[in-house]
């Protein structure tokens, strides 16, 4: 790969621009479905883009008490981490852009960075609401991250590789095996709601309690990038889930592969939208109890199943 094509890959396709467009489209799908589930008309297709452009034009306020460099850099880091993670996920082909052994772990940690930036951004903006939101965000990480990791690692265990491309390759070769991971898929989807900070796990930005949580003091461009990062994070996370848990139809022609990939993403986004329509927001103690007492055992059950299946094959 020459430097020129690498830059093209990173910035345009399937990198930043592609991901950003997908992120905004994903936000639209989510909002539209959310509205339709609630019997409302919902926003027009350009609403996420319009919101983004509007925020770009708004005043950028940095609180006087804030730790300026971290406060300013947090959104950039969030977006960069999400983008980096996207490059390691196979989308429609069996291989990602930059596969290596162990990229699953790297992607999981890259996906943790946005949450860390929410924490840092909230903590450094030195407002009570943002501080509380930051604390809640970091508390929540310890609750949902374990079941999510375990659920995502279970398929890897079965495939006997730490590379996402390797996992995809393995399940393409053994198509009968991917339904084994369905329990893990359910766990991953539920815990993703925590990662994406959506109802019932939108505790860190619970509007009626702590205004906007970590984002309370953010405005203008920085808020726009934070929101874009969250949108992209949703796409990346959903793509990861699609690659690991729904690894079928990867040998198709490029156009059919793209369509299938988009269909998978759309389906998973719809499930996420339905899930966030369905519940009341839990309290932080309830959320942690739920993740540790319900989600984590189920995720470990998946590990157990996969170990057994591996022994059987």
């Amino acid at each position: 790969m020459t430097a020129g094509t690498a830059v093209l890959h990173i910035l345009v396709f399937p990198g930043f621009l592609f991901l950003a467009v997908l992120g905004l489209a994903g936000e639209f799908v989510d909002r539209k479905l959310y509205a339709r589930f609630q019997n409302r008309v919902g926003p027009p297709w350009f609403q996420p883009l319009a919101d983004f452009v509007k925020l770009l034009g708004k005043e950028n306020v940095v609180p006087e008490e804030a730790d300026r460099p971290i406060f300013k850099l947090a959104p950039v880091f969030a977006l960069a981490a999400v983008l980096a993670a996207f490059l390691y996920i196979p989308l429609w082909g069996p291989k990602s852009l930059l596969p290596f052994d162990g990229d699953l772990i790297v992607v999981l940690y890259l996906l943790l960075i946005p949450t860390v930036t929410f924490f840092l951004g909230g903590w450094t903006s030195s407002s009570v609401f943002a501080t509380l939101g930051a604390l809640r965000a970091i508390t929540q990480v310890f609750a949902y991250e374990i079941p999510l990791f375990v659920a995502l690692l279970a398929p890897a265990l079965l495939a006997n590789t730490w590379s996402i491309s390797g996992i995809v390759h393995y399940y393409s070769a053994h198509p009968a095996l991917w339904p084994v991971n369905l329990i893990g898929l359910c766990v991953a989807m539920v815990t993703l709601l925590g990662k994406l900070e959506r109802v019932p796990f939108d505790i860190p930005e619970a509007e009626t309690e702590i205004v906007a949580g970590s984002f309370t003091e953010y405005s203008g461009r920085r808020l726009a990038f934070f929101r874009l990062a969250v949108d992209c994070e949703a796409i990346v996370a959903v793509s990861l889930v699609a690659a690991i848990f729904l690894p079928f139809g990867l040998g198709l022609a490029p156009w059919a592969g793209v369509l299938l990939y988009l269909a998978k993403v759309l389906f998973l986004l719809a499930v996420l939208a339905l899930l966030r329509t369905l519940f009341a927001r839990l309290r932080i103690d309830q959320m942690i109890a739920f993740c540790w007492k319900v989600m984590a055992p189920i995720a470990f059950l998946q590990i157990l199943i996969n170990l057994v299946v591996r022994e059987l094959i």
Partner: peptide
């Protein structure tokens, strides 16, 4: 869930 899915195919109230 049932009423949500039904809403998806109903005319919006707004």
């Amino acid at each position: 869930i049932p009423s949500l899915l039904r809403s998806l195919f109903r005319r919006p109230a707004t």
